[in-house]
Nucleic acid binder design. Structure first.
Length: 226
DNA sequence: TAGGCCATCTGGTCCT
DNA sequence: AGGACCAGATGGCCTA
């Protein structure tokens, strides 16, 4: 598996305060160190499966999906001893049957978590951020936050496009089916300026200023520096 | 060394 | 009964 690292505070701010692909990219770039390759590889004694060799390759790899190595029993006892009475482990001695049941439950849970991680990897693959090998992998929480903001941004862009289409259609004397096609938008009808993303870019010298005066990221004039 | 992130184990709960 | 899901606990790895 690749490498993990926490995001800086700024990066999290960028994530939680609306989404901007460029901004997010910058934030992540800055938050990420140049190094990487944190091969989780050796789960080491990590977790509770000391016997399982490096199950965390990016590839489904030797998915430890359930099978236990020969040392499993010993490992199990060690875990129990380590956890002690207060731990999650059962203090009493288990019959072998219960133990094997436990092991199979563990394997199932492990598989489930791996599936979840695969899904997160899939999500990382489709959200815009630097996918370079030198760039650290997004953490789980960052992935979810970024995906959420990305969806919101896309929805907003779509909404704005609909308004733009409606506006242009009206300009050509066409009926505006878009008004009904886009019930989400409060600008769905009438001669309201279709551009209105809320970007603080100053008054639009052209259409936007003539209507709502609200600048838009989709409007060429709005995005141009005065 | 502290803090963040993660994988795994485990027991509990709910659903089929 | 068995499986899925969840949350708490534990311990390892890594970076600042």
């Amino acid at each position: 598996m690749a490498e993990l690292k926490s995001l800086s505070g700024e990066a999290y701010l960028a994530l939680s305060h609306g989404y901007s692909a460029a901004a997010a990219g910058l934030a992540y770039g800055a938050a990420r160190g140049p190094d990487a390759a944190r091969g989780y590889g050796a789960p080491g004694p990590g977790g509770d499966l000391p016997a399982v060799p490096a199950p965390r390759a990016p590839a489904p790899a030797a998915e430890s999906s359930g099978e236990q190595s020969g040392d499993e029993d010993d490992a199990f006892e060690q875990r129990r001893r380590r956890r002690g009475p207060g731990g999650a482990g059962d203090a009493r001695r288990r019959p072998r049957e219960q133990r094997s049941l436990r092991l199979s439950i563990n394997a199932r849970e492990r598989r489930r978590m791996h599936d979840l991680n695969d899904a997160l990897d899939g999500l990382r693959a489709v959200i815009p951020y630097a996918h370079s090998p030198s760039v650290r992998k997004l953490s789980k929480i960052a992935t979810l936050l970024l995906a959420k903001n990305y969806i919101l941004m896309q929805a907003q862009a779509l909404d704005e496009m609909r308004r733009l289409v409606a506006f242009l259609n009206r300009g050509q004397g066409l009926a505006a089916p878009v008004a009904t096609a886009a019930p989400l938008t409060p600008f769905g009808q009438a001669s309201v300026c279709p551009f209105s993303s809320g970007a603080a870019l100053g008054p639009c010298p052209d259409k936007c200023a003539a209507f709502s005066g609200t600048p838009s990221a989709l409007c060429k004039h709005c995005t141009e520096k005065p």
